[in-house]
């Protein structure tokens, strides 16, 4: 609900508009993070704040889940609407909006895959634009698998043919699950590479090239993994 245009009427419920560095309530310069240090009013999380910043973590791909959870609990205590029941409607609106952003931020960063997809979106544009695609080396195999899956769905499951198809699908599922694990360990290596690159903090043409390489590989792996993941889920749902 917050946006960045300064407003002449700061305290209206539907148009919470604030200058980035100004308290919506007392208009004093903001020095606190989420609360105005002068009037102690809660401040809306700006819609431009990324989830890493929101939870107070650097843009790294290896995060300590315990620390992440502790920060989430701390901010939940600060923002949750339960604690704003006696406050003004404006503060209640901010609390509700902030709590919703915080919950999304935590949900995204808690899961390593979602975290990486989010970082990719921040660093290299939306991941939604990349279609999930099959890995080239598995393309033939997957086409064949889709055929088997169709045959199995059409077959009598208790017949010999049904049982045979089922067994072959189970083998395929195991192969794909192994493949998924492989991709995930590759991803973890890339996550470490990324973090190390960030920690070095250099800005040479070489590090820029390295950065682009990591992002590109991560994007491909994530896209392939999602594709494999969907098939595995589909398989699991069909053959149980």
């Amino acid at each position: 609900m917050a946006n960045d245009q300064p407003s002449t009427r700061p305290e209206t419920r539907h148009q919470l508009q604030m200058a980035r560095s100004m308290c919506w309530h007392c208009q004093s310069e903001m020095s606190g993070e989420y609360f105005c240090e002068r009037c102690v009013k809660v401040q809306p999380v700006s819609k431009d704040t990324d989830y890493f910043t929101c939870l107070g973590f650097p843009r790294r791909l290896t995060l300590d889940p315990k620390k992440l959870e502790a920060k989430f609990y701390e901010l939940s205590r600060a923002f949750h609407p339960d604690f704003y029941q006696a406050k003004s409607p404006t503060e209640q609106t901010i609390s509700l909006g902030n709590a919703a952003v915080l919950n999304t931020a935590y949900r995204t960063l808690r899961d390593p895959i979602q975290r990486a997809e989010y970082l990719l979106a921040l660093e290299a544009g939306s991941v939604k634009e990349i279609r999930t695609s099959p890995p080239a080396d598995l393309f033939e195999e997957i086409l064949e698998l889709q055929d088997t899956l169709e045959q199995y769905r059409a077959s009598d499951r208790e017949s010999d043919q049904g049982r045979r198809l089922r067994a072959s699908l189970q083998t395929e599922q195991q192969t794909l699950e192994r493949r998924r694990e492989e991709m995930e360990s590759q991803l973890r290596r890339l996550f470490t590479d990324w973090d190390q690159l960030q920690d070095r903090g250099e800005a040479t043409s070489q590090t820029r090239a390295e950065r682009d390489r990591i992002l590109k590989q991560m994007r491909d792996l994530l896209s392939h993994r999602t594709y494999i993941n969907n098939i595995v889920n589909d398989l699991a749902a069909t053959i149980g």
Partner: peptide, 16 residues
């Protein structure tokens, strides 16, 4: 208990 949290009586518990 939840009513007391909303009323500001209980401050150490929070339900998510």
């Amino acid at each position: 208990v939840q009513a007391d949290i909303l009323g500001g009586g209980t401050t150490d518990m929070l339900l998510l």
